[in-house]
């Protein structure tokens, strides 16, 4: 495979990565169907206090990456290869019961839809204390004040009353805050947020992002931010990985990547965002085609059919992820940098 274990070098230098994903490959197998490789040799590092973004459109493998790291993929029908080293331990090689002990304690996850991610028949408070009971061996009564403080800390007003409220009685933003409180209950060192703002309206999105940013800064938690929203990335991430068809096509520090995208896909994503300073009525520039048009990575660049500037090699050879000066790029004909 061409996506060999290259060493990403961005982030805060001098610090050991907390999570180091190397050559992660997830293949789904269904009877009577061709195996489908959803994640194809993804490698990235997350350092303490760092926020790393995984960006891409639907089906690019970003959620599968996070579920694979968490050990939450279904037990059957898929194979996970590669390593995900957390603090010296390969999470992918851990037996299920040990991984279960780590989930929620060392690594926690925030999901997309806050209403459906909360248990509708249990009060919020009980859902928070459940985590504390599970990982800290606390009694429910002892955990209750802690749960109250957690709700307070994530900005839920009147936390005492909210403890006994059911999810349907909370607003969307409050539900997401409650989920964040549950994720933070055991002070995990790594937080994975899978599209945490997608189901929320724009003003609430901003509040939740600000909250996440504050929490990361306060606690030094490492954050993996999975999103299709480049606005979220721009506001939050230190380093950005752009995924396409299960592989990383470009990686870079946030400002560099936004100022000078080199991969035509990244550049196309940025061009398709409406800009406040753009001319009124000017049409957006979409990326033509859809993910269904992909070529197989084994013999080509998967993005070639949708690319704005393909060359002959793109459909004949697999591009490698080339590293230079903190950036990584998988492209034969990158976008010219105009500064």
């Amino acid at each position: 495979m061409t996506a060999t274990a290259t060493t990403p070098r961005t982030g805060r230098p001098g610090q050991e990565p907390l999570l180091s994903v190397r050559d992660l490959r997830v293949t789904f197998r269904r009877q009577g169907e061709e195996p489908f490789t959803a994640v194809d040799g993804v490698s990235f590092d997350v350092r303490p206090g760092q926020t790393v973004g995984l960006v891409g459109e639907s089906g690019c493998g970003k959620s599968v990456t996070s579920l694979a790291i968490m050990g939450l993929l279904p037990a059957r029908g898929n194979t996970v290869e590669g390593t995900a080293t957390y603090d010296g331990t390969d999470l992918l090689g851990l037996p299920p019961d040990q991984m279960r002990d780590r989930r929620g304690r060392d690594i926690a996850m925030i999901f997309q839809d806050p209403l459906s991610s909360l248990n509708p028949v249990i009060p919020i408070g009980l859902q928070v204390t459940e985590v504390l009971e599970r990982h800290r061996g606390m009694r429910r009564r002892a955990a209750r004040p802690l749960a109250r403080d957690l709700l307070d800390r994530v900005g839920i007003p009147d936390p005492d009353r909210r403890l006994t409220d059911y999810p349907h009685q909370l607003s969307g933003g409050m539900r997401q805050r409650a989920l964040i409180a549950m994720a933070l209950a055991c002070e995990p060192r790594l937080l994975i947020a899978d599209e945490p703002t997608t189901a929320l309206d724009v003003t609430i999105q901003a509040q939740i992002l600000r909250l996440l940013k504050e929490l990361v800064e306060e606690t030094g938690t490492a954050l993996v931010m999975i999103t299709h929203d480049l606005g979220v990335v721009a506001g939050l991430c230190d380093e950005v990985n752009v995924l396409y068809g299960g592989r990383i096509v470009e990686r870079g520090e946030r400002h560099e990547l936004f100022a000078a995208p080199r991969h035509p896909y990244t550049s196309g994503l940025l061009a398709s965002i409406p800009r406040l300073d753009g001319a009124r009525g000017a049409p957006l520039t979409p990326i033509p085609g859809s993910v269904a048009d992909n070529l197989p990575w084994e013999s080509a660049c998967a993005f070639a059919p949708r690319c704005s500037q393909p060359v002959q090699r793109c459909t004949a050879e697999t591009p490698r992820l080339e590293e230079s000066a903190g950036r990584a790029l998988r492209c034969f004909n990158p976008v010219e940098v105009t500064r």
Binding site: R100, R102, V131
Partner: peptide, 10 residues
């Protein structure tokens, strides 16, 4: 989703 979320909390 909420079962997945519960599992994600260990």
């Amino acid at each position: 989703d909420h079962v997945l979320a519960a599992r994600a909390l260990g």
